[in-house]
Amino acid sequence: MSITNQDVQHVAKLARLNFTPEEEQMLTEQLNAILQYAEKLNELDTDGVEPTTHVLHLSNVMREDEAKDSLPIEKVMANAPEEEDGQFKVPAVLD
């Protein structure tokens, strides 16, 4: 498998990133080199091997469903780039 400039454009859109054409070209080359190296894993026979989802066999962590203290609204808003009436302000989502 090798990836193309179009793939990079598609993935950039998924990742919500913008790149210049030069950056796109460089990323295509670098990602190809890294993925080519990753092809090495195809040498491994992994039939019947369980994927590791958690390295130390932790089971689900449950607790009672009870309300606990959360941060006060002023603290939640303390780093907001823009806020209005205790809410995060963003450009219009719908026209």
């Binding site: 990753a38 894993l41 491994l44 992994t46 989802t53």
Partner: peptide
């Protein structure tokens, strides 16, 4: 950071998940 986000997004994207992410999770077991 952008390079790794791109690599990770690609490895998790539709059609490549089994070939890259799942394969790597199995390699991790070995």
């Amino acid at each position: 950071v952008k390079r790794r986000i791109m690599l990770g997004t690609y490895a998790l994207s539709s059609g490549y998940y089994d070939a890259y992410y799942l394969k790597a999770q199995k390699a991790r077991t070995l």
